[in-house]
Simulated assay, not measured.
Amino acid sequence: MGEKTGYPVIYLDKECWQPGWTYPPQEEWEKKNREYISGREWIIDGNHHETLEMRVEAADLILFFDINRLLCIYSVWKRHGHKRVDFPDYLDEKKDKAFWQFLGWVWNFPEKCRPGILNIRKKHPEKMFLTFRTRKEVSEFLNEIEP
């Protein structure tokens, strides 16, 4: 999407996770997010619920990928341990306790996190909020974007 629009892409996981898989202090993380949304054009990739509402308030368009959890688990498994543009180079992914906990988070996302996203959506009916349930829908949407 960034290539097609020319907008800068900010990957929250890459910006958030610090050495040793530590999270930045809340005030620092919120300040960074305010900086990300202060630009005129941007694409921000990631959940990070603690700063989601401020990003929604600043966004023109919100894309919610409400994809089947089994497909999400498979995707996490498949990409795990591979170099990715959305992740810091200095972190090593291992199939350790944290990995299994993350898979649990992905599995429980529909019950634990989805309602919060839908509540934010309800709170901001003026925002364009697109929900994708399949990868095919995502592909079709991306194909419609004019460079």
Rank of each mutant, 00 (worst) to 15 (best):
M1L: 13
K4T: 08
T5I: 05
T5Q: 05
V9H: 03
V9L: 01
V9N: 11
Y11D: 03
Y11E: 01
D13W: 06
D13G: 00
E15H: 10
E15N: 12
C16W: 13
W17Q: 07
W17S: 03
W17G: 11
Q18P: 05
P19V: 00
W21N: 14
T22L: 11
T22S: 13
P24E: 09
P25S: 02
P25N: 10
Q26A: 13
E27T: 13
E27I: 10
E28G: 04
E28A: 04
E30I: 06
E30N: 11
K31H: 01
K32A: 11
K32L: 15
N33F: 02
R34C: 04
E35L: 13
E35F: 02
E35N: 12
Y36N: 06
S38Y: 06
R40H: 07
G46Y: 07
N47T: 08
N47R: 01
N47M: 14
H49M: 15
T51N: 03
E53Y: 08
E53G: 06
R55M: 07
V56L: 14
V56P: 04
V56R: 08
V56C: 08
D60V: 07
I62K: 00
L63K: 08
F65K: 07
I67V: 09
I67R: 05
I67G: 02
N68F: 06
L70M: 13
L71S: 14
L71I: 11
I73K: 02
S75R: 15
K78E: 15
H80T: 03
H80W: 15
G81H: 00
R84H: 01
V85C: 05
D86N: 15
P88L: 01
D89M: 05
Y90R: 14
Y90N: 08
E93N: 05
K94D: 14
K94E: 14
K94H: 13
K95N: 08
K95G: 06
K97T: 10
W100T: 06
G104M: 06
G104T: 11
W105P: 11
W105I: 14
W105E: 13
K112V: 10
P115N: 01
P115E: 02
P115S: 12
I117R: 01
I117C: 00
N119G: 11
N119P: 00
R121M: 12
M128F: 09
F129L: 12
F129R: 09
T131G: 03
R133D: 11
E137S: 03
S139D: 13
F141V: 05
I145A: 13
